[in-house]
C-alpha cells in the first residue's frame, strides 16, 4: 500500500470505534423502534410483529396524549422564557463586569455540576409543608397553618428553571464575550444612550447565543420526566412520563415506541429549524 493510501485510511481507523458505537447504539435502535411502533401488543406477552397502525392511531388521535403533549410544550416554553429573562441580565453582568469574570462564571456554573436529583429535591426543603419558607412565614406570623406550595405546575417549572438556567447563562455569556466592545463605544460616541446601544447593537449581536441557550432549555425541558415526578402533582405529568409509563409500568413497548418517536419528531423539527438558520456550530461553542 502506498504511503498516501495509508495516510488516507488512518483517520477512518481512528473514527471507526466511535462511529460504530453511535450507529449501533443510537441510529440502529432508533430505526428499530420505528419498526417496533408498528407491531402489536398481545395479551399473551410476546409482541406481534407486523404492520399495524393501531399504536399510531392511538398516539395521534387520543386527546389524552395530545393534551399532555401541548401542556409539555407549554411548560417547556414558559421555562425557556423564564430562563432567558433571568439568565440574560446575569450573563450580561458577568460579561461586562470589571471583576474576575472567570470566578463569577464558575460560581454560577457550580450548581450545574451538582447532582440533578439533589437540586430537584432540594426545593422540597424550601417549599414543603415543614420547609424553610413555611417555617419562616409561621415564625413572623403571616400564616397560622403551613401552606402546601409544592406539587403543582409552578413548582415543576421552578425545578426546571433551576436545572436549565446555567445552560442559558453559559450560551449568552459566550456570545456576549464575542462582541467587539468597540462597537458599543462607537454607538455611544455617536449619541446613542446606553439603553439604545443595548437594544440596537448588543442585543441583536447576542441573539445567536440566546437562541442556542433557548433551544437547549426547551429541548431538555420538554424531554424530562423526573422533575414532574418529584415536584409535580398527579395531574402534572409531562410527555416523557407517558413514555416511561408505557415502557416500564405497562410494558406496552409498541405504544411506547410510537410515543417516543412522536416526542423525537416534535423536538427534532425544532432542532432542524435551528440548524437551518443558525447552524450547529453555535450550539457547540456553548457546550465545549
Amino acid at each position: 500500500m502506498s504511503v498516501e493510501a495509508r495516510e488516507a485510511r488512518q483517520p477512518w481507523i481512528l473514527l471507526s470505534p466511535a462511529l460504530t458505537a453511535v450507529a449501533l447504539f443510537l441510529f440502529v435502535p432508533l430505526l428499530f423502534i420505528l419498526v417496533y411502533s408498528f407491531w402489536l401488543r398481545t395479551a399473551t406477552g410476546a409482541d406481534q410483529a407486523g404492520f399495524y397502525l393501531d399504536n399510531w392511531r392511538e398516539a395521534l388521535t387520543d386527546t389524552f396524549y395530545r393534551d399532555i403533549l401541548f401542556s409539555t410544550l407549554r411548560i417547556a416554553a414558559i421555562t425557556t422564557l423564564v430562563c432567558a429573562l433571568m439568565g440574560y441580565p446575569a450573563a450580561y453582568f458577568i460579561a461586562r463586569s470589571k471583576g474576575n469574570k472567570a470566578i463569577l462564571l464558575l460560581m454560577l456554573m457550580l450548581p450545574f455540576w451538582i447532582s440533578y436529583i439533589i437540586r430537584t429535591m432540594s426545593w422540597i426543603n424550601i417549599l414543603g409543608v415543614s420547609g424553610a419558607l413555611n417555617t419562616f412565614l409561621l415564625w413572623i406570623g403571616i400564616i397560622t397553618d403551613p401552606i402546601q406550595m409544592l406539587y403543582n405546575e409552578t413548582t415543576v417549572i421552578l425545578g426546571l428553571v433551576h436545572f436549565l438556567l446555567p445552560f442559558m447563562v453559559l450560551n449568552v455569556f459566550v456570545s456576549l464575550e464575542g462582541i467587539d466592545t468597540n462597537l458599543e463605544d462607537a454607538a455611544n460616541s455617536l449619541g446613542a444612550t446606553r439603553w439604545e446601544t443595548f437594544l440596537q447593537v448588543t442585543l441583536p449581536l447576542s441573539l445567536p447565543g440566546l437562541a442556542a441557550g433557548g433551544l437547549l432549555c426547551f429541548v431538555l425541558g420538554a424531554g424530562t420526566y423526573i422533575t414532574p415526578l418529584v415536584l409535580g402533582g398527579p395531574r402534572d405529568a409531562m410527555f416523557a412520563n407517558l413514555v416511561f409509563e408505557a415502557i416500564i409500568t405497562q410494558l406496552n413497548w409498541p405504544l411506547g415506541s410510537a410515543l417516543s418517536l412522536m416526542l423525537l419528531a416534535v423536538l427534532g423539527v425544532l432542532v432542524m429549524i435551528y440548524n437551518r438558520y443558525l447552524g450547529m456550530a453555535q450550539l457547540m461553542k456553548g457546550l465545549g
Partner: peptide
Amino acid sequence: LIAPILVPEVVLAVALLLF
C-alpha cells in the same frame, strides 16, 4: 457523533432498551 445529545435522552433510553 454529537447526535446522542440532540436526541432526547428518554427516546435514546427507549430505543437502546428495546433494541
